[in-house]
Amino acid sequence: MTTTTKNRKIEKIPQENILDNASKISIKEMDIWYGAFHAIKEVSMKINPNTVTAFIGPSGCGKSTFLRLFNRMNDYIESFHFDGKIKIDGKNIYGKKTNIEELRKKVGMVFQKPNPFPKSIFENVAYGLRIQGIKDKKIIAERVENSLKQVALWEEVKNDLKKSALALSGGQQQRLCIARTLAVQPSVILMDEPTSALDPISTASIEDLIFKLKEKYTIIIVTHNMQQASRISDYTAFFYMGNLVEYNKTELIFTKPEKKQTENYISGKFG
């Protein structure tokens, strides 16, 4: 126990130095457990609006678990419990008054494997609107079109909107899933290894998309691919064994990492 406490002290990061404006998300001394397993160990961090933040680290380091905290997707795991504070837009998202559905409209999520509904392309994108009770066909059609245009899928599918989404290619399906998330008009988008199931060309198009999306959204992306993190993110957080080892501007993490562990990981010595 004494060694971990020591580590924590060493690994504290001067947050003020890297954050230059008001933070969108702030996490304070967050611990997460699955049963007896301590998945995240006293992590504190702040995330700026309209930036792309990448979470990197070897498998099992807790980065996906941490990401799922932001839209409360861990709630469905019975053994999950946590201790700490997380605020989005200044509001405690685990407060008693928090409406989970409202939170998830604000904090969208894109998953590792494309998971379109077995419905038409149009209905996939319209899903989030329909569950909100929006019935106006014009509004729905407009938002569907806009969302599909934002992910550069509109030209490819505009004549096939009634076709099943399952007929699309993997890369198209993932862009559809992003469009589906955008249609709800969130301000934060969580991405859990969104390109790990895709070929290089589809990956490149999703990366371009992420780069464009940060104008309007705050994006947090979990990735195994270090090149990807360095290409698209503004900030990078390196997790190891449940600890936030280093968190800084991406260019600094990849050129002048402060910690030996970070350097070893990004240079491919372990992981």
């Binding site: 409202e102 969208g108 998971n115 379109p116 509904f117 077995p118 419905k119 899903y127 569950i131 589906r180």
Partner: peptide
């Protein structure tokens, strides 16, 4: 597949909406 249910929840659907619109049709 639980991935479909997760997708629905992540878009802000309640449990019943998810059952009604995703689980039962599938």
């Amino acid at each position: 597949p639980s991935s479909l249910k997760e997708a629905s929840f992540a878009l802000g659907a309640t449990k019943w909406q998810t059952i009604q619109k995703v689980v039962l049709p599938s």
